[in-house]
Design a protein around this nucleic acid. Sequence first.
RNA 1: GUGGGCGUAGCUCAGCUGGUAGAGCACUCGGUUGUGGUCCGAGAUGUCGCGGGUUCGAGCCCCGUCGUUCACCCCA
Length: 418
Amino acid sequence: MKFEKLAAPKGVREYLPPESQAFEWVREQLISPAKRAGYQLMELPVFEDTSLFNRGVGESTDVVTKEMYTFEDRGGRSITLRPEGTAGVMRAVIESNLDRGQLPVKVWYSGQFFRAERPQAGRYRQFYQVGIEAIGIDDPALDAEVISIADQGFKNLGLKNYRLEITSLGDAASRAAHRVDLMKFISKLDLDEATRARAEINPLRIFDDKRPEIKSAMQDAPILMDYLSDYSRSHFEQVKSYLDALGISYVVNTRMVRGLDYYTGTTFEFVHDDLGAQSGIGGGGRYDGLMEVLGGQALSGIGFGLGVDRALLASIAENTLPVGDFTSDLFIIPLGEEMKAFALTVAANCRRQGFSVELAFGDRSLKGAMKGADKSGARFVAVIGDSERESGSVELKRMSDGTSISVKISELQTVLGA
RNA sequence: GUGGGCGUAGCUCAGCUGGUAGAGCACUCGGUUGUGGUCCGAGAUGUCGCGGGUUCGAGCCCCGUCGUUCACCCCA
């Protein structure tokens, strides 16, 4: 009887050894600046009530209308695998009254997100993000800090071929006024049906169109930046001046489009040049109405999400990944079955002292075990047989040059630690 | 959801105008007693993604399907 092989579901990205090591490194580089800025971990469910995303992300967005993994659970509830992180964070903050203490609430998260899209380079159905949210204070300095934390994450990776694009989406009133004029402008254009339908849902989308004829047609379209209120304008100017002070370069992109409805005011995106069509490696912005819409206080907040998968692709493209693999300090080869118990205890003792130690298993020949030791990259190798157990000392062989010295087993740490 | 490319050993691939499958790397063992990297020798591994069809005969042709990949769309 032969069983059929199973495969992972379509479009999921898995990270297995040795690549998983790079993934883990990238994720830590991206989030460590947030930890150092006092942001604290929030572990959240990967599924939520569907209504959270309908309300939070926005009914008109592509994410909600056609990209969510939604299903009914056994209790008949409509459940959705989280397509982004901010809505869940806000729900938890409101539910647990974290916003009743000192503000801003500063949290970070990391994990899987799900979107039922057609897979492509840098786009997966299950993907990884790290992100932060700073909730409750509307201060341009906080905007600048949040942006700089994201930027530092990319800098930690050694990335250079990316740029920060920023804009301000203003408040609801300015967006409404702009929308009226923009629709007026678009209605005069000669557009195909699909494009016109997209414009109906969100006219800003047309700014994003890649076709040259559309790009040139949109050349003179009214831009939101010209509709900002005095408050929004000065807020944005402040953010820019703080970024200047931080030495963070940016380009103002007055035509930026974001796919989630909740963004207001400062909005930003990190774009990498070497990634093909899916070039956004991170993005975020301020969201004024979100908390209230989700049943909480009317507090502002700002945050970002960074794509770990794409940051890894960018690091590969720029060749910035560290070369050193995990290597253990010591590789122990027991000679024969009867030596295994002793070898296990020696290994365990060394590990307790903080060294990384690997063992040879199975019944390979000594030569085979040595090959295994070589491939493991271990710094030292010790063969343990009868004589070693009796004498209490081993020949510690340094793999880099083949030399060996006799060391008492009880004093291994003096050599391993050197 | 729409369109194009691709699916042959663990990996990278070759396989001429259809005649029942190969290389390199990797892996395992060996080159005499308990020491790796080089070298030499030997060995194992494939329902040629899956299902139909055409044919005396299909890895090669046709159809479908699944997967993968790239782009549109969208976004991390």
